[in-house]
Design a protein around this nucleic acid. Structure first.
Length: 117
DNA sequence: CCAATGACTAATC
DNA sequence: CGATTAGCCATTG
């Protein structure tokens, strides 16, 4: 397997998605920020080109407003919602329930947190 | 290199 | 809350 697909940017996006823990979701903007870029649009496009779906949790990427967004895989958005529900993510009317609570912000940066707050 | 496109986002009406 | 506008950046023809 593995076959250097897509461009470096796209590969970086797919790699970032693998970081998303099961039962959580993230946004395109967060991924862009994690990659150190503001190309939210480009990130969305790269995720849509994900050739490893659903092996790669591209379905855990949703919009900034909590809506599931789109899904190019089989079954479309409905399939995306089904996958999320199987992972314990509640979805209602096309939106993530408790979105802010389960939203993954790539915050797992070391424990070196200066004591928070 | 220029023009068009897109699994986006935020602001306005 | 829904529809529209404008800004955004990388990929592709």
């Amino acid at each position: 397997m593995k076959k250097t697909a897509g461009s470096a940017f796209e590969r970086a996006v797919w790699k970032a998605m693998e970081r998303i823990p099961r039962g959580s979701v993230t946004t395109y903007g967060d991924i862009a920020r994690y990659l150190g870029t503001r190309a939210v649009r480009a990130v969305g496009t790269a995720v849509g080109k994900n050739p490893y779906a659903p092996e790669v949790p591209c379905h855990r990427v949703v919009r900034s407003d909590g809506s599931v967004g789109r899904y190019s895989g089989e079954g479309g958005v409905e399939r995306k919602i089904a996958l999320l529900r199987e992972e314990g993510v509640a979805v209602r009317d096309g939106k993530i329930v408790d979105f802010d609570s389960i939203r993954y912000r790539f915050d797992d940066q070391q424990v070196t947190r200066s004591g928070g707050s």
